[in-house]
């Protein structure tokens, strides 16, 4: 798995990591039973505090998508409900992609499209789905 954390984004790093793992589950990059690196290994790789990784893992465990087995690592655990959600997200991604294509053909620039999306979503705080 590849993660990209943005230290200057207005969002805690553990939350960014959580969302990227959630997203990877939704798009199928991470599947039921897959193992994630240990806290120390991932922290060294991302050059972030181990507390950042530990917090993301423990929140994901609370959310029921990660199984932390002491000494043997972190495993993705995807429930049937989460799989259905993953299908919905994949379908939505397709619709977003089509819509963006349409808007580009209508002559809008990517920045303008992005602003429209952001303006629509503005004011709502970042959410993490707890499945």
């Amino acid at each position: 798995m590849f993660f990209k954390l943005k230290p200057s984004a207005g969002q805690p790093l553990y939350l960014q990591l959580m969302q990227q793992i959630q997203h990877a589950i939704e798009n199928g990059a991470l599947q039921d039973g897959d193992q994630l690196p240990g806290i120390r290994t991932l922290a060294e790789e991302l050059l972030v505090s181990p507390n950042t990784v530990a917090k993301a893992y423990s929140e994901l465990e609370h959310a029921g998508v990660l199984d932390l087995r002491h000494g043997s690592g972190a495993f993705i655990s995807v429930s049937r409900r989460a799989r259905l959600l993953a299908d919905r997200v994949r379908a939505a991604e397709m619709r977003v992609r089509n819509l963006i294509e349409e808007l580009r053909e209508a002559g809008l620039l990517d920045d303008e499209i992005r602003r429209l999306f952001e303006a629509r979503l503005a004011g709502q705080s970042e959410t993490v789905r707890i499945s």
Binding site: L5, P7, S8, L13, I39, R40, A43, E44, L47, V48, S49, P50, N51, T52
Partner: peptide, 29 residues
């Protein structure tokens, strides 16, 4: 930075002064 992260993972408290704001922003709690 990797060494500091590894050391912290072993339970050591790390306190460091620096001018490297970008690195601090990434690695510090």
């Amino acid at each position: 930075l990797q060494s500091l992260v590894a050391q912290c993972a072993e339970g050591t408290a790390v306190f460091f002064s620096s001018h490297q704001i970008a690195e601090v922003e990434r690695v510090a709690d």
